[in-house]
Each structure stands twice: as C-alpha cells, then as structure tokens.
Design a protein around this nucleic acid. Structure first.
Lengths: 160, 160
DNA sequence: CATACTTATATAACATGTAATATAAATGGA
DNA sequence: TCCATTTATATTACATGTTATATAAGTATG
C-alpha cells in the first residue's frame, strides 16, 4: 500500500481532497439511486429540487441556486428538457430570459424521489458523518475511512 | 439573491457541495500559484510532491498515492513528461511497469515550490479553516462564507 | 430615436475526473 | 512448455465542471 499523499499534505491539498471526497459521495449516491430506480444522473437532481423548492426559475437563477456557472446550468437544463422533466418558456416581459419549470413527469419524479429516495440518501450520509465533530481534517479522514469500510450503499435502510 | 439550495439540502447534497468547495479551493490555489510564478496546473503538483516524498513510483502507485484512477494518472504523467518535469523508464524486471521520477527541472521546481509556494498556500488554507470545529455542515458553511468574504489569494502572506 | 452599454443565454474550447476496454507482459498450472 | 489467467498501462468515450466569447434583447443617453 502506497501512502495517501493528498491526505498527508493536509491543508496544502485540501481542495483536491474535498473534491475527491465529493466525487466519491456523488458516485455512491448515484449507485443508490440506480438501485432505487431513479432514472437521472445525481448531478441533475439539484435542478429539479431547486425548482420544486423555489418555484420556476430562470437559467441564471438556477445557476446561482445550485452554485455552478451559467453555461453549466444551460447545458443541464437542456438535457432535462430533452428528457421531458423540465419545460422552459420565454419570459413574457423579457425575451432574453427563459423561465424553467417542472413538467408533469418532472413533478411525478420529484414526488417519488421525495418519498422513496432522498430520505434514504440523507440517512445514509448522516450515518457516515452525522456524528462527526472536531477539526476539519480529522472529519475528512473519518469520512474517507468510513466510506472505505462501508460505502454509502450499505448504509441505506433496506427497501422492504 | 436566490437561495443556495445545495447548502439548504444539507446531507442530501453533501457530495455536490464538497466537490464545489474543492473546486473553488483549487481555483483559488491556482491563482495564488500563478501570481507566485509557479508554471503548472494545481492538479499536477500532487504528482511531483508524491514522488518528492516517496521516491520514484510506478503509474499505478501514483494513482493510489493521489487517490485518482489509473487512466487519470497515465494522462497527467504523460503531460508532465512532455513538460520536462518527470521522466519515466521501463522497470528492468517487469516491462509492463513504468518507473516515474523527477527530472532535473522537476527537482528544481519542487525545491522552489517547497520554499516559496507551498508554505504560503498551507497558511492561506489554515487561515480559512484551521480554527474550525463542530459539525461538518457548519464547518462547510463557514468555509463558503469565509471564501466569499475573502478569497484565498487575500489570505496569502505577501511576498516581500 | 439611434447608438452604445448592459444583461441573459448559448456556444466553443478546454480541464480533469470517471468507467470500460485494449494491449502487452508476467505468472501459474495441466 | 504451452496456454489461460492476471496485472500494468494505454486508449476511448463520456460526465461535468470551467473560462472566454458570441448573440440577442433590454436600457439609457446624446
């Protein structure tokens, strides 16, 4: 076994390390959703959830709400419209803006996810890091060790 | 201002959020390095640092040490060889393995970075989150607020 | 009111990760 | 020893973020 230098370097490589943990969490989350029959990419759900929570939003507002750049939001919105989960229409007063809202199927998907999928993911992540405390680097180490010992999939309450 | 839903959703979107913070840290780190005249991408330094710390490594060992997949390591090693920072040679006993080591210029770059760049980055990140404590989500919020208030670049001790 | 600025979205080029698979070398058992 | 399996690296296709820039619509000023 080779030493994990990104862990050893501490604050110097914190960005790399947080990105790496985030990607691992997203990948595990994706597997949980696949098992539960959720038909989208994990990265696409924040768009549905944001509109479900805040109501119809423009592309720029979605980018802000999700914390990515506008071109990223434009692309994912286009994918979700293509998949029939979102609808977008020109704003009546300002032809530059596009108002993005949930389609009927999008609303159905969100309702199912809220009932069957999101609570389980929340619990699994809480199982991993809900009780953590102390310095940041220690918590990150605990998360990495915890994921290695038992990935998120095995922390999900079984579907009966 | 639109609500930051990734923050609001807590554990449900933790992966997205950690990835987002990691990317921001990397981007800020990149800017610091650019200002300090370090000529590589932030994501390439872990390769140099790993070999500096552990000695010559194979591609697979580098991937393990840095925590990425082997194809990612193969690509970055190829870039750094192309840039003249790394050298790779076939292992004498096993023609499949490539032993990757620092070139003369790579060693010079690491020496400079260790003296002038890495300590400053470490300090800047420590300034952001060295004193954090408590639950993970609170610490992440503090990091996001801290970065928004004063990016890493402005936490670097000025070069005299 | 025409022209210059600003704003919202789209597009292009690129960075950096992944998974799946190809290729070549080493290894082990009939 | 030969062939099947395993292992190490390379390649391909793709996901998802970025920055820079184009385009089109709104706004404001001479």
């Amino acid at each position: 076994m080779v030493e994990d230098v990104v862990r050893s370097f501490g604050f110097l490589t914190l960005g790399t390390r947080m990105k790496r943990i985030g990607e691992k969490l997203q990948a595990d989350t994706q597997r949980i959703m696949d098992e539960l029959g959720a038909p989208l990419q994990a990265s696409q759900y924040p768009f549905l959830a944001a509109i479900d929570r805040l109501g119809p939003l423009t592309v720029g507002e979605l980018a802000d709400a999700i914390g990515i750049t506008q071109p990223g939001a434009t692309r994912t919105v286009a994918q979700l419209v293509e998949l029939g989960m979102l609808e977008s229409e020109q704003a009546p007063d300002d032809q530059r803006r596009r108002i993005v809202s949930l389609s009927k199927e999008g609303r159905r998907l969100v309702a199912n996810a809220k009932r069957d999928v999101w609570p389980r993911i929340r619990e699994a992540v809480a199982d991993l890091c809900g009780d953590l405390d102390g310095p940041l680097l220690d918590q990150l180490a605990a998360m990495e060790d915890g994921l290695a010992a038992r990935p998120l999939q095995r922390r999900v309450v079984k579907v009966t």
